[in-house]
């Protein structure tokens, strides 16, 4: 059992250390949601009126509405970034050192996921701290409630990235998938506009957004940030995590052949 702890610690430590070393990565991870918050949200404040919807019990500013969506965005990008680094690691070879170690592959991949989630949570709290000075101030307990939620949402989005990395052969292909995954997931969700508003414009888009796992993650975060548990969103996030992780593990399993097929 201690072997597992040492390995988990080693993998998390490596990821954190790499993250701290890559200052540009930290900055860009932070600047992206801040630009959305300071520029996009300010511009759209007047155009998009938000009615009173749970978990909010009063009228809110658009900035307040999109904050959970931007937290989701941080985790979505982080999940994709981790998987991008896995494709890179596989091309560069360091993934081999991980996969050749004497531990079950599911454990190694889950540890790698957890390491990525820790990094994303650090980013989220720094973002929330800056947002606090911008008058986006959820109740204090919300900052605590959101922590376990961020672990699950981070795992789900990381597992999605892991799944993609198992099926992508080269870094070049990855850029395309980023466009086909990140942007549709983000725009067809409740991150920027409530689902009922989307329903007014298009039933199809509303349906897609409703069943988009990213919507569920964002709603899970939104409610937790205001001290409430959105069970439906939580269960959907958990389900999506389990499904994504299982497919990813199959993808990385030598006998199932993703590695084999690639001949890497």
């Amino acid at each position: 059992m201690t072997h597992y702890w040492f390995a988990l610690w080693g993998i998390v430590f490596r990821e954190l250390f790499r993250f701290v070393k890559q200052k540009e990565r930290f900055l860009s991870a932070l600047v992206r949601p801040l630009v959305w918050l300071f520029v996009f949200a300010a511009g759209f404040r007047a155009a998009l009126g938000i009615a009173i919807i749970p978990p909010y019990d009063t009228y809110i500013l658009y900035e307040v509405y999109i904050t959970p969506g931007l937290i989701g965005m941080i985790q979505l990008f982080n999940g994709m970034q981790s998987s991008l680094s896995m494709v890179y690691d596989r091309e560069m070879g360091s993934m081999r050192i991980l996969l050749v170690s004497p531990l079950p592959r599911w454990f190694l991949l889950t540890s790698k996921l957890l390491a990525g989630v820790f990094v994303s949570i650090l980013q989220v709290y720094v973002f929330l701290m800056i947002a606090w000075f911008y008058d986006i101030q959820p109740p204090i307990e919300g900052y605590l409630w959101v922590l376990p939620v961020l672990i699950l949402t981070g795992l789900m989005l990381g597992a999605l990235g892991l799944l993609l990395s198992a099926f992508i052969k080269q870094l070049e292909n990855f850029a395309g998938v980023m466009n086909f995954v990140i942007f549709p997931m983000f725009f067809m969700s409740s991150a920027l506009y409530p689902l009922w508003k989307l329903q007014e414009s298009s039933q199809v888009l509303h349906l897609i957004a409703k069943y988009n796992p990213f919507t569920q993650a964002v709603e899970f975060i939104r409610f937790a940030l205001y001290g409430q548990l959105n069970q439906e969103a939580g269960l959907a996030t958990l389900l999506a995590f389990v499904v994504f992780l299982m497919i990813a593990i199959i993808g990385y399993n030598p006998s199932k052949g993703m590695m084999k097929r690639k001949g890497r």
Partner: peptide, 11 residues
């Protein structure tokens, strides 16, 4: 140290 951790060796 990273490799040692993967092999279950204490720091």
């Amino acid at each position: 140290l990273y490799h040692a951790a993967l092999q279950g060796i204490s720091p």
